[in-house]
């Protein structure tokens, strides 16, 4: 699967014509590992062709964009601080505003199961939108907590909010929330991703820790849940604990990558509780990760998110595309 690569390295290279500000989200297209969608704090949404390493499309929001997603190869959705949800047609290069939230839109996901777009906002709600026309199908309160992260696989829809709350929904029936949970981690929820097999989800917190949890509330199944520490660096006598900003599942092997503010990317086998590998340290915090649909490529967005005092000079915002090997991603 390793495509012959130009540039710096056989396995990893940097994208060109990158956004001018921090990268908030990267997403590979649903059916190809050629296209990568990128949202940024420079208010732009860009589409890259990673095979030729070129920027193919770009459109702007009024304010920084916090998340993007694909519906299919030619339609994308984006939302951010300007509170508006935009749809973009890549073929027609045309943007449509689908609607607004009362707060910044933090997460945008496409629910193929019901052909709808879901947006999570700091206004404490999730909205569901008709994926074609500006029509809000429903607004779902998330306990009045600000939505920090969302993930959907099939009908399983998990929302993580401030106050360490977790809401589990079924997108086919948004009439009521299926489960309300409190995070098993003691610190702020940073990212949640549902297993490709829909059995559970992986959750990360700002305190260098990742939990593997199961949706089935049967006590036998719940026994399998666990958490582990990662993304920590011993610096002399002091252990620095970094937020785990990003998680992305390898859809074929059910393994997952985590990216932390320490600049490391680790790949884990969640079922066997093993770390499969750790890549070299990137120049700054890893803000977003995305495996391509076949798991052959991993997009790694590196942007400082002001975790600490602003560094001077500010580290460069970059996106790496890494062609991963089975050795790195397949359970042993």
């Amino acid at each position: 699967m390793t495509v012959t690569r130009v540039a710096e390295s056989r396995t990893e290279f940097k994208l060109k014509s990158l956004p001018d500000d921090a990268i908030s989200s990267v997403k590979f297209a649903p059916k190809s590992n050629q296209f990568l969608l990128v949202s940024s704090w420079d208010c732009s949404v860009r589409l890259y062709d990673v095979t030729s390493n070129t920027e193919r499309h770009k459109y702007n929001h009024e304010l920084p964009v916090l998340d993007v997603c694909f519906r299919d190869a030619v339609h994308t959705y984006s939302g951010g601080l300007d509170q508006t949800l935009k749809m973009y047609d890549l073929n027609a290069s045309m943007e449509t505003t689908l609607g607004e939230h009362k707060g910044a839109i933090r997460c945008v996901e496409f629910a193929s199961e019901v052909n709808a777009v879901l947006t999570g906002s700091w206004d404490g709600t999730v909205k569901m939108w008709d994926s074609r026309v500006p029509n809000c199908v429903g607004t779902y309160n998330q306990g009045n907590e600000r939505v920090y992260t969302m993930s959907i696989v099939g009908e399983k829809f998990v929302v993580g909010t401030s106050g360490r709350k977790i809401f589990v929904w079924d997108v086919r029936n948004m009439g009521h929330v299926n489960q309300r949970r409190e995070s098993s981690l003691k610190y702020q929820t940073r990212c949640i991703r549902v297993f490709p097999n829909k059995q559970g989800y992986v959750l990360s917190s700002i305190e260098g820790r990742v939990a593997v949890e199961y949706l089935d509330s049967n006590p036998e199944v719940q026994k399998k849940k666990y958490a582990f520490k990662c993304h920590r660096i011993k610096d002399g006598g002091l252990e620095k604990i970094y937020p785990v900003n990003a998680i992305s599942f390898h859809s074929v092997y059910n393994t997952f990558a985590t990216g932390g503010s320490d600049g490391y990317v680790n790949i884990w086998d969640g079922f066997n509780k093993k770390r499969l590998c750790q890549f070299h340290r990137y120049n700054t915090a890893v803000s977003s990760l995305s495996f391509s649909h076949d798991g052959s490529a991993l997009a790694i967005a590196c942007s400082q998110l002001d975790e600490t005092q602003i560094e001077d000079p500010k580290p460069e915002d970059t996106i790496y595309i890494r062609y991963v090997t089975d050795q790195e991603t397949k359970p042993k």
């Binding site: 921090a22 908030s24 704090w41 920084p64 916090l66 601080l81 910044a104 933090r106 700091w122 600000r146 920090y148 401030s162 610190y187 702020q188 940073r190 700002i206 305190e207 260098g208 920590r232 006598g237 002091l238 252990e239 620095k240 604990i241 970094y242 937020p243 900003n245 503010s261 320490d262 998110l305 002001d306 975790e307 600490t308």
Partner: peptide, 21 residues
């Protein structure tokens, strides 16, 4: 978390994005 460790995050329990925004 303790004397020997430090969470690299602003003290406020608000997401990095909110702080940045």
């Amino acid at each position: 978390t303790g004397a020997g460790s430090k969470i690299i995050h602003p003290p406020e329990d608000v997401s990095l994005e909110e702080i940045r925004a």
